[in-house]
Structure formats: structure tokens, C-alpha cells
Amino acid sequence: MNVIYNFAEGVLPFAWADYKFMVNAFIAILLIAPLMGILGTMAVNNKMAFFSDALGHSAFTGIALGVLLGIHNETISLIAFGVFLALVITRVKNKGKASSDTVISVFSSTAVAVGLLVLSYGGGFSKYSAYLVGDILSISALEILGLLITLIAVVIIWAFIYNKLLIISINRELAASRGVKTALYENIFVIVVAVVVMLSIKWVGILLINSLLILPAASARNIAKNSRQYLASSVAISVICSVCGLLISFYADTSAGATVVTVLAVVFFATYLFRKK
């Protein structure tokens, strides 16, 4: 990491590069943004915007579970609960007759309520309120390494499941008739999304994580004509907006996550105006 710090200080001619926490945040953003850009494409294709929102909100219960079970590392209980909830929602959605937004809403509100109930016991909620907006400036070198490993793993898994997910996103029955195990690939995808969302939530925040996942892909959809353009522009929009947002937040002294999402929203509306009719 020291090499990177020295590099940043020496090469980047900006005031922010002198601060270690800013360089850390910068690298972290460069890892989180492509992750969100990649996964977002399929989340949007499969109309899972509300699903990932619910997943983010369920982080409260994940933390609460960790507290109840006495697990020291919150990330473990977060991921475990996130994966569990993602699989349960997917199963209920595919089996049940209720419309999927109703199913997701029920799970989402239950997870938020139970989480808040446990965490607020004895008036101790303020300790956890940092999770609401997240704080990317507090990320450590070790945690950055964790994100890097996650990014590599996601890209590898992605390469294996991409074609299957794409045909499922066109039509499930068509995919099944071509011999694709739809439930298996859907489950792999929601597990990956759950793990990535839960790993990033501490830095991005419960309220903003879904915007980071959905907005780049939604913007890319406005301009892309094929799957390659879609993925490439989603990742590019995600990375550029995240970096811009982080730097603006440094100079304007605003919350990093909120600034990033605002920049993403501006780009979404701009691409919406220029979308291909």
C-alpha cells in the first residue's frame, strides 16, 4: 500500500492525494464501482431493482443477528443473512402466486423492523446509524484487499454464468427449453449480489447502495444497443461517476456516498434525454 500512497502523493497533483484516507477511498471506489456496474446490468435486466433495495435494507437484521449471536465480525452475519434472504425471496417469488413486488415488500419491511427492534434495544441504535449512509473514508488497506479479491471472484463467476443469465433475462421458458437450469443460475446470481451488497454496505450505506447498483445500468440501457455496449457503458458510467462524486465531495465537503449517487442520477437523466427511441 505504501507504494501506492507514495505514487499518489508524487504523481497525482491534487491536494486530496496527500491524505491517506482519500487515497484509500479512491482505490475502494475503483473496486466497488465496476462491481456494481457489472452486477447492475443483470439486476436491471431481470427487473430486480426492488429486490436489491430490500437486500440493502435487510442489512439491519444481519447486524442485529450478529449482535444476538455474539458474532464479533459483523460482516459475517451480514453476508450470511443477506444470502439467506436473497434465496428465500427468489424461491417465494418463483413459487408463489402473489406478485413479486408484494413478496419483496413483505420481506423488506419485516427485515428492517426486526433489525431496528433488536438494535434499538436499550437505546443503543446510534452506534449503528453509520450504516445508513456509510463512510468510504474509513476503509482500511486490508478491507481494500478484500474488495479486490471479491472483484476478481465476481468477474470469474460472471464469465461462467453470463450467457445463461442473459437468456433467462429474455424469457425463462425459452431458457428452460434450451436446457438451462434457470433456478440454479438465478440462485448463483442472487448469492453474488447479496455478498457484494453486504460487503460494500459499510462503505456505501444502506440508503444508497441500491442506487449504486441500479443507476449505472439504468443509464447504460438508455444508450446501449447490444450486450457489449451495455456492460461496457454501465461499468464506465459507474467508475467515472463514482470518482467524480468522491472528488466533488472532498472539495465541497459533502457526504461521499450521497454525492456519488447524485452525480449518477444526473447522468441517468442526461442519457434518458438522449436515449434511442
Binding site: 435486466n45 433475462s169 424469457n171 425459452l174 447490444n226 450486450s227 457489449r228 451495455y230
Partner: peptide, 16 residues
């Protein structure tokens, strides 16, 4: 199939 029900706004080309 008789009729393929899919999201017409999806950025998927015939080649894809």
C-alpha cells in the same frame, strides 16, 4: 413459441 414475451427495451442484439 407462439409469442415470446420479453422486455423490449433490453439492450440485446439479434447477434447476442
Amino acid at each position: 413459441p407462439q409469442h415470446l414475451d420479453f422486455d423490449r427495451s433490453a439492450p440485446i442484439s439479434v447477434e447476442d
